[in-house]
Amino acid sequence: MSDVLARVTKMVVEHLDVEEDKVTGNAHFIDDLGADSLDNVELVMAFEEEFDIEIPDDAAEHIQTVGDAVKFISEKVG
């Protein structure tokens, strides 16, 4: 879990060009981190690539916060 959090945090910082201390579990990609809908799509693709998993579109729609992403990925990678 902590490994996933660290990697997700690093990716969010890079993709959304935000300060690391803003990337908390509750941080909402769009409301708090300045993403738009296309950024979200790109971020989900980057998660798929980084963790070698598939995130179906209906699941991707529910990944709205950093915590959502970490939870989904952690369950997938077991």
């Binding site: 296309l38 799509v41 790109e42 693709m45 798929e48 690539e49 598939e54």
Partner: peptide
């Protein structure tokens, strides 16, 4: 196709 970025078209 799943690897195509949403920024390809724009």
């Amino acid at each position: 196709p799943r690897r195509l970025s949403p920024f390809v078209v724009p």
